[in-house]
Design a binder for these strands. Structure first.
Lengths: 345, 345
DNA sequence: CCCGCATTATGAAACGATTCAATCCGCCCG
DNA sequence: CGGGCGGATTGAATCGTTTCATAATGCGGG
């Protein structure tokens, strides 16, 4: 209700002085400052953010556009972002694109008008909002992608080497003696998923079989359908190990297999991706390919702030993290022969 | 970079006309409009949100301050909010207080400056930011609490009757023949948790025992410690059923019990709260007390918008939803005698 | 005793959009 | 032929800050 003008009037000073009290308190005389502060308290004055930002041209909030907040992976990334933002007293605001390209488009449009300090985003798909993102950048709003975006020519990005992740998965499962391996995941238009599968496929030799179980999405529900398909395969040809597109899928597969009487890892081993907290906490603790989730968010934020400060002198960078295997029970050494699968449901 | 003035110059019209093209397109002559639109396209002009909001005084975004984004419950509530917001083309921005009162305070401070259209919040604790919330309201920003806030005298709120939820839980477990029941949850400074426990305690009779396992927080990890405690109790006095403060705890309990060789529900039944998707998808599908999550968010948003439109003529309301029992396997009828618990660990 | 400097305070000019009273213009009708 | 009407357009005022050149004040030194 009350503006800086009111405060000035009540304190008997000019608006400039009030502004100084707010922004450079030590360039105003102590007693004047006290008078102004008293007026502020008396009126319950609060700065108007819009006016402030209009004048300043830049905001103090950074926007995160998450692909799917229902996936704990993004929540962890978010912690990293918040940690980095806290240092500079920046506010983090989160938007959820829910894997919906239209929604994403609307959000970006809004952000273009709002002009946050920077944007961190996992785009719904590769080409999608390419030009809209470019427009943000050309307006001086740094954009950092959480994305394996080596194919994108410009802009900063942080990512995890998903091909390597897939490879680690494959090597681990082979080493455990598995020869029939399944990959459960999709859609393959999502780069990460494609890469994980390709990494896995790349390390398999001729005498090993790879069964791909395509899924329309990566969540617990689709994981269960994958589990169902696996359980229904004849034991003689059933894969002895499943590498899942992410941990949600792995959880679904685990739950379905368990319910149908198949033992994990004895009958079927399961390997997830992301290493979310639920993975370690599952009924059978899940082995998983860990992504440095908080660090991903942290690094992206730092890069973004760098770009925001350096302005045009900024050099874009791509930081690629290495994933690592976390071994738990779900891929432990088998107690029975790999081939001797038991009857199920 | 380019403002409305540039556009006006390029199109050869006044700024007022450009503004009209943007806001009331049909009160400007078609050919003028086309000229303006062309200029806009040519310059890549985008409205400046801050200026817009400064002038308008009100924003088109609603702020949600979630208590804990890591709990899928809030993500579901969020969907409800987004659904309601979409109708009016409003943007939803999410903030995470992470159960941290300081963080919450900083967020509210920031929101006071930013002046969103409205605020939906689950406060960290009852008394906490009371006056800060009041200040928002007195500034004309409607605040709706997701909270059983019957004790709060003013402001709108939506909530679920947690005492009833606890009662439903108790009645169900008794009906299933359980006489030794545990409640796992905390902290009891959180109203919801307190109410759930009290509801449960209220329906138990003298010959039934209630063991409270206090937890510092409601998540999978604390759930596991609760599970551990239960597993280590002597079978003769061990509770035959656990009612958990929420589903995350229930998942933790389930996983720990399962790993220690106790069967669910035969040795110990488990009942959760919230009915998040993970509950139905657990290795042993969890019975749970369902809260209408999306509807909670939806209703809160509608109430908030109502208040935003009606202004001072608005009558605050408290909407209390009824929770309901969802029966699944984790509290199914026991195959063995309730007293005859098996050896564990 | 006066000048100049340091310290404070001032107020007008932005920032970019919206709004609204005023103006303009063409046309119809008396 | 002129008044009036209505649709289209204008441009100045406004929102609340921040900034910056300028002014005022006080004080010490030459």
């Amino acid at each position: 209700m009350s503006s800086i003008k009111e405060v000035a009037r009540v304190a008997g000073v000019s608006v400039g002085t009030v502004s100084n009290v707010l922004n450079r308190p030590d360039m105003v005389a102590p007693e004047t400052r006290d008078r102004v502060l008293a007026a502020i308290a008396q009126l319950g004055y609060v700065r108007n953010g819009s006016a402030r930002q209009l004048r300043a041209g830049r905001s103090r909030t950074i926007a995160v556009v998450a692909l799917d907040l229902a996936n704990p992976f993004f929540i962890d990334v978010l912690s990293g972002v918040e940690a980095a933002a806290q240092r500079d007293k920046l506010t983090v605001m989160v938007f959820n694109s829910s894997k919906d390209a239209d929604r994403e488009a609307r959000l970006l449009e809004m952000l273009e008008e709002q002009r946050p300090l920077g944007v961190l985003i996992t785009p719904v798909n590769d080409r999608g909002q390419r030009e809209r993102l470019d427009r943000l950048v050309s307006r001086g709003i740094p954009v950092v992608l959480f994305d394996n975006s080596s194919r994108l020519s410009h802009g900063c990005a942080v990512a995890v080497d998903d091909v390597l992740g897939g490879r680690l998965a494959g090597l681990h499962l082979r080493e455990r003696g598995h020869r029939r391996i399944a990959f459960a995941g999709g859609p393959f238009t999502v780069r990460q998923v494609e890469d994980r599968r390709d990494g896995l496929a790349g390390v398999l030799t001729a005498d090993e079989t790879l069964t791909v179980i395509p899924l329309p999405d990566l969540n617990v529900a689709t994981g269960r359908t994958a589990g169902q398909k696996i359980a229904e395969m004849p034991p003689a040809t059933r894969p002895t190990a499943v590498f899942c597109g992410n941990d949600l899928v792995a959880l679904g597969v685990l739950q379905e297999l368990t319910q149908r009487g198949l033992r994990v890892p004895d009958d079927v081993a399961i390997l997830g991706y992301d290493d979310i907290d639920f993975a370690a906490a599952a009924a059978v603790p899940l082995s998983s390919i860990r992504q440095p989730r908080e660090q991903l968010g942290h690094t992206a934020t730092v890069m973004m702030l760098e770009e925001a400060n350096q302005g045009s002198r900024h050099q874009h960078r791509h930081v690629i993290f290495q994933p690592e295997l976390v071994e738990r029970t779900s891929t432990a050494a088998m107690r029975t022969e790999p081939k001797a699968a038991e009857a199920a449901t």
